[in-house]
Nucleic acid binder design. Structure first.
Length: 368
RNA sequence: GGACAGGUGGGUGAGCGGUUAAAGCCAACAGACUGUAAAUCUGUCCCUCCUUGCGAGGUACGAAGGUUCGAAUCCUUCCCUGUCCA
């Protein structure tokens, strides 16, 4: 039994797209949804107030590995959980640390039992097992937890991918069993993660094996690891239909605004990505007219708004010239205003996608 | 008037006879960024030319002379700046 309930409101008759409601212990999430990334218990540059009031974000991410290291999951638990600690009343999804197997590959060793991490902060060793990552996420009070997985780099040979995929399946089973032992009446959900590198048959085999867990939702991981963008979409297009149609499907780590509708068309309901937040801080802004690299000299006297079609505070209030000035000056306000806008751009994109599905116009939306 | 210290590319600042068109940093310009080791990282950054190459010329380390095969680096004079003393 899961605290998570997924309700499908509309499906696109031509594509796999669907619109739904994800009922969590911390509110309703309208899908398809883009989830801003708040690795260390904060979406960099934004306050929870902005996320809630200005942006109406319903769910954000946090990270097990990073919060385990600092400030520590037990400390957060003593505070009453991560929601209270970071003053975020809405839904939280926590990644398991599986991505750090990929991104911090020089600091870890993978074994059958789990991952031995050497802290990137101080060198201390910490062992992450399928069970311990569930425990940490329970301590954080996550609404949607992820099983520990091994996120492979690209390219990975087929044999290595098969071996790793089987380990990820064993970890998912172990994590799931532990979760069911610990949570008799859960307030949260645990999603397994499909791996298999870029091999369609491995992806399908992995999905099939994970189905027996009867999880309330499934994720597709191991993409956006350096492969060509077309390949990421092919892998998702093959994998998503193999996951239960009545459960939310989550593609981890995507994507550019032009890619997102294509994932939705595959029947994907949830996505997260660091692009809007990280690129914002680096002066790369997403607009209705394409990218605006605000640091470019061409904007030095530009009196116009960042994106005339956007209604965010940044676009309503400031000129491109001023935003460029803030970036050039290294002012902290820039990060804040830029992130506010970029997240708004992504969330608006999702809202339009959702409305088009509900209104039966998703195919047209997909073409624009 | 005297004594020291010093004048280097947009800025700062190394270099103190050849491997120096001249380190590093900053600024400027451009690029990257996809479950965040990221307010990070990479490249360009005197001028001209082309067959775009660890290419060819031309300028360049306050100024002018000089020593030397060779000078940002040594010598002379001058100009300028700073500190101190009268």
């Amino acid at each position: 039994m899961s605290a998570l309930r997924f309700e499908i409101q509309a499906t696109c008759p031509e594509t796999g797209a669907r619109a739904g409601l994800l009922h969590t212990a911390h509110g309703v999430v309208e899908t398809p949804v883009f989830m801003p990334v708040g690795t260390q218990g904060t979406v960099k540059g934004l306050s929870p107030r902005e996320l809630e009031t200005d942006l109406d974000a319903r769910i954000i991410l946090a990270n097990t590995y990073h919060l385990f290291l600092r400030p520590g999951h037990e400390r957060i638990e003593r505070f009453g959980g991560l929601h209270r600690f970071m003053a975020w009343p809405r839904a939280l999804l926590t990644d398991s640390g599986g991505f750090q197997v990929f991104s911090l590959d020089t600091f870890r060793k993978v074994t059958e039992e789990g991952v031995l991490f050497r802290s990137h902060l101080n060198g201390d060793e910490h062992f992450f097992s399928p069970e311990s990552t569930v425990d940490v996420q329970l301590a954080l009070g996550s609404d949607i937890m992820m099983t520990l997985d091994e996120c492979l780099p690209y390219p990975t040979g087929r044999d290595a991918a098969l071996e790793s995929m089987n380990r990820t399946i064993r970890w998912a089973r172990a994590g799931y069993a532990h979760y069911q032992r610990r949570e008799k009446s859960p307030h949260c959900a645990l999603f397994p993660i499909v791996q298999g590198s870029m091999y369609a048959d491995l992806r399908l085999a992995c999905a099939e094996a994970l189905l027996e867990l009867d999880a309330p939702g499934y994720a597709i991981g191991g993409i956006s690891v350096g492969e060509p963008r077309d390949l990421s979409q092919e892998v998702v297009a093959v994998t998503a239909p193999a996951l239960p149609a009545d459960r939310p499907r989550y593609v981890m780590g995507v994507g550019m605004p032009e890619e997102i509708p294509r994932y939705i068309a595959c029947g994907v309901d949830m996505m997260d990505c660091v692009l809007p937040t990280r690129n914002a801080r680096n002066g790369y802004l997403f607009t209705s007219q394409g990218k605006v690299v605000i640091k470019q000299a061409q904007y030095i006297d530009d009196e116009g708004p960042l994106d005339p079609a956007c209604h965010c505070y940044t676009c309503r209030t400031f000129s491109r010239a001023y935003l460029r000035h803030l970036f050039q000056s290294g002012e902290i306000l820039f990060s804040s205003l830029a992130t506010l806008h970029n997240i708004r751009h992504f969330l608006d994109l999702m809202r339009r996608a959702r409305q088009s599905i509900i209104g039966g116009k998703f195919p047209e939306f997909l073409r624009t």
